[in-house]
Write a protein that binds this DNA or RNA. Structure first.
Lengths: 369, 369
DNA sequence: TTCGTGCAGTTGTATGTACAAGTATGGCGA
DNA sequence: TCGCCATACTTGTACATACAACTGCACGAA
């Protein structure tokens, strides 16, 4: 096949482009090495490099030193605006607790692939979530990582999500999933985690075990479920008012007050299973103010193994949360979905592990001091 | 001008970009020929061509066979699509310490104004900073909030910043400023803060006062300066090895080890002024392992009033950092600069306030218990 | 004057070599 | 079994050379 007058490197360029356009090479597939192409097409490696450089510049290929040359996913090829080169991330909080770690993991992966990251937070407010989604749509992000807002309370922004779907913009969810939306998600097995936490204190001999759960998102309800299941499984009776549920808006006041009441009762609990470390740390204070000590008088189990768990006055027994890794895998999954819309992503479920520190102890064992 | 390790063709690229950024070459002006550049910079024509190819690709130059290579007018330099609707933010860390709060403040203001936020982190690595800036440039952000990376160690990415200026994209800096860049910045008065911290322990009667400072960024050097000034002002002698400097890469090991040595000496310090809360918390552990107690045997002052300060086993005496407010004002300032390029923004300098908690005590007063 | 030719100078195409730097792998030894 | 190292293979950088294609200009011929 000769092409009149056309420079060799352009001939090769068209040849390679025809591979892509005919779908003979799938995204992220390895192309022949420069030397092999040179040999096969009877040209020097430098000429091949010129071809590949142009194709890379135009977004059709990407190259990695030491590994090879690969087919770029289609959206790289458009290369026009920011359309296919950035993804959005919508989380409940940006600055608090474990969320910065999740963001960080996603950001690292995206940066390594030259993708931009649009960030927005909802402060766990559904109107803000709506605003954020709208903004992402306007910006034309190529994909979306979302942490649902108040996932236990329905999804008034369903129409926004469907708008993304209509445009073919894939999204993945982290920490929870709106049940009415069918999309891949990454979650920790909250129920198993809370079960393990409860089992832990039961095995330490505790019987009066309270549970505090934030129930406006699904994580909280699942964790409560795990707690209840363990209590039932081991035949431990639930205390009167021993299960306290609260919501985001009163998380700094209500559970602390409730704990104060519980701890001043005659039949006070000897252990508390907490929704997360944030609450556990808040309760530490309530416990001290009630004149009790952790873990001597009361064992406390947190959840998420946040930095708080180790920085707290009493280092918390808690359950791990993948945090950074979850962000990384969410980003990787999303990139793959963006590259290949037919890819059937499977949910990733992390099983949290119990980390025993200083906030739990067997009943009746260590008196104070 | 040598640039360590950098490939020759990139050196030439920066050289030529600096011509453009400094306005030495006007649009449509003829550049020296490839052969002349090769001769002048002592490289082969092929290498020069590689440089020019990249610069042409990026829109800085255009070439005409038989005529020569010319400076492209600025509007050729690809103006982004998101110019008026998004800003970029480049911080050292995303997930740790006070940075999430700064990001949050900026994000809140930007979201209220319907602006998107591109986020990128550098992990305090200058190469990553370069990548991040490059990405922001590619995305065509309309403005930039930057926290300089290792600000005490010079600015190898100056050309990137000048590229933003060349395109008329305003930027503001937070926490520090590269001295060679004239731009508005928001900082805390680190020197005054460290002075106040040192003065505080001096007034509590301490005389053997060590100082630990991270000196690869300007904040650390300024804080050290404040410490030294207070010591001199009050005529307190510096202990031998009493001033410990460290860097980001060894922040988790070196200062802790040094503290262990210091505390085991005969004439051990009775107070330590720390670069920040993160270090103070790390030292708390070292102190305990040395068999000493805070504040009974040793007073410690942190800096930044982070969440750590209150969550730590001993609540830290520390100095405030505006965090969220700094992020908000940085965003507001940037938005104003974007709206009105003639606006002369003034630096914002926050004076940190001393917060006395439990980690400092007058010498010889409170024995243990 | 006008046209054309040749020439010097420019970028474009093409090939050759060599070594640097990064990745993956298999084998070897502790 | 684990970790280390040598090795083979990849792309990245740099040099040298040659010729093609094109521009602009000077010079000479019609």
């Amino acid at each position: 096949m000769t092409r009149g007058g056309m420079p060799k490197y352009l001939q090769l360029k068209h040849e390679i482009l025809s591979w892509l356009h005919r779908g003979e090479r799938k995204p992220h597939e390895l192309l022949p090495s420069e030397n092999e192409l040179a040999a096969r097409f009877g040209m020097s490696r430098q000429t091949v490099r010129q071809t590949l450089a142009e194709l890379e510049q135009e977004g059709y290929l990407y190259r990695q030193r030491g590994k090879g040359t690969f087919v770029a996913p289609p959206h790289f090829a458009k290369a026009g605006g920011a359309a296919g080169t950035a993804v959005g991330m919508v989380t409940t909080y940006i600055s608090d607790y474990i969320f910065p770690h999740i963001v960080r993991g996603a950001e690292a992966v995206l940066r390594a692939r030259g993708m931009g990251l649009y960030l927005s937070s909802t402060d766990n407010d559904k109107d803000r979530e709506r605003e954020s989604l709208r903004m992402m749509l306007d910006r034309g992000v190529g994909g979306l990582i979302i942490e649902p807002t108040k996932s236990a309370e329905g999804n008034p922004n369903l129409d926004q999500y469907l708008a993304f779907r209509y445009r073919g913009v894939p999204f993945v969810m982290i920490n929870a999933r709106y049940p009415e939306l069918d999309c891949p998600c990454l979650v920790v097995d909250d129920e198993a985690g809370a079960y393990a936490a409860t089992e832990h204190v039961i095995r330490l001999g505790h019987r009066r075990i309270a549970g505090f759960f934030k129930t406006d998102d699904l994580q909280g309800t699942r964790r409560m479920k795990g707690y209840l299941r363990a209590m039932k499984r081991y035949g431990v009776p639930i205390l009167p008012d021993g299960v306290v549920t609260y919501a985001s808006h009163n998380k700094w006041t209500y559970p602390v007050g409730k704990a104060g009441q519980l701890l001043r009762r005659e039949e006070r609990p000897t252990a508390i299973v907490c929704y997360n470390d944030e609450l556990a740390v808040a309760l530490l204070r309530a416990v001290r103010e009630a004149g009790l000590a952790v873990p001597d008088d009361l064992s406390i189990v947190g959840f998420d193994d946040s930095t708080l768990a180790q920085a707290a006055e009493v280092k918390l027994t808690t359950l791990t949360h993948p945090k950074t890794e979850m962000g990384e895998r969410a980003a990787e999954m999303l990139l793959r979905l963006m590259a290949d819309p037919t890819y059937e992503a499977e949910d990733v479920i992390y099983t949290p592990e119990l980390v025993v520190r200083e906030s739990t102890r067997a009943v009746g064992v260590g008196a104070r001091g």
